[in-house]
Amino acid sequence: MARPPRFSTDRLLDAAVLLGAASGPAGVTMSAVAQETGAPSGSVYHRFPGRNALLAEVWLRTVERFQEGWLTTTDAEADARRAGRAAARHVVAWSRAHPREAALLLYGAEDFGRSGWSAEHSARADRGDGRVRAALAALAAGLGADGPPDRERVALAVIDLPLSVVRRHLRAGQPLPAHAEELAEECAAALLGQAPEPGADVPG
């Protein structure tokens, strides 16, 4: 049986996450990953043809892992408000469990060189963004309103506000407080409760 590679793609990306969390996207370089893992430069270039590919992979792996769990919370078929609260709570809970990855998500895809990504990497990013937009639209529709202000309210409730709780503490180098998930859920409940009930008249 063949032995697993000593320097796997995931091991190299784990090192890139560590570097990015400590120094931001600028700290994620081919040579820094090689030094962090003790891998020969050839092993890094064998898996990533250049820095743009490395940046794309570390960003996409991080955001896709976050999205996978977040999207499972947003099924609004039974109760849109409950789904929205769960989605807001997930942002904080995932960040608590994965603080280094969460530190990367405080940046954006452009900070990780999206303009220089391959077509394949860009398509992966677009698919993920599309799934998130569809989930937000479904939540808004589940609340009985799907106009632009309502979609903005849902995005604020289930993504932007929870991320602001995470951002403030991570950028200060502080652990997330024990009440952070509860606070995010309470804020989401307050915002989502302002959306009209299904069938209610919407003021003109």
Rank of each mutant, 00 (worst) to 15 (best):
residue 102 A to P: 01
residue 141 A to F: 04
residue 191 L to V: 11
residue 43 S to F: 03
residue 204 G to I: 07
residue 190 A to H: 11
residue 107 Y to H: 15
residue 101 E to K: 10
residue 39 A to R: 04
residue 129 D to N: 08
residue 129 D to Q: 12
residue 131 R to A: 15
residue 149 P to M: 05
residue 102 A to F: 01
residue 13 L to D: 09
residue 7 F to I: 05
residue 86 A to T: 01
residue 15 A to C: 06
residue 71 L to C: 03
residue 178 A to I: 01
residue 102 A to Q: 04
residue 73 T to A: 14
residue 80 A to W: 00
residue 65 R to Y: 00
residue 16 A to P: 01
residue 148 P to T: 02
residue 71 L to A: 07
residue 67 Q to I: 09
residue 106 L to W: 10
residue 181 E to P: 00
residue 176 L to F: 09
residue 49 P to I: 02
residue 51 R to G: 05
residue 75 D to L: 03
residue 170 L to S: 09
residue 61 R to K: 13
residue 113 G to V: 13
residue 15 A to T: 05
residue 74 T to V: 09
residue 74 T to M: 14
residue 200 A to E: 13
residue 8 S to N: 08
residue 190 A to K: 07
residue 186 E to T: 13
residue 2 A to M: 13
residue 199 G to F: 06
residue 196 P to H: 04
residue 120 E to Q: 12
residue 14 D to V: 06
residue 33 V to L: 09
residue 100 R to P: 03
residue 55 L to V: 09
residue 68 E to T: 08
residue 157 A to T: 08
residue 150 D to S: 08
residue 157 A to H: 07
residue 7 F to C: 04
residue 105 L to M: 15
residue 25 P to Q: 09
residue 53 A to V: 10
residue 138 A to W: 00
residue 195 A to R: 13
residue 34 A to Y: 00
residue 92 V to W: 04
residue 86 A to M: 09
residue 167 R to C: 10
residue 143 L to A: 14
residue 125 A to D: 15
residue 14 D to Q: 10
residue 27 G to V: 06
residue 160 D to T: 08
residue 126 D to L: 13
residue 125 A to T: 04
residue 35 Q to D: 14
residue 197 E to L: 15
residue 22 A to Q: 14
residue 54 L to N: 11
residue 23 S to C: 12
residue 71 L to W: 03
residue 95 S to H: 02
residue 44 V to C: 10
residue 34 A to E: 07
residue 29 T to F: 05
residue 87 A to P: 05
residue 157 A to G: 11
residue 43 S to W: 02
residue 165 V to S: 09
residue 108 G to P: 00
residue 130 G to Y: 03
residue 74 T to Q: 02
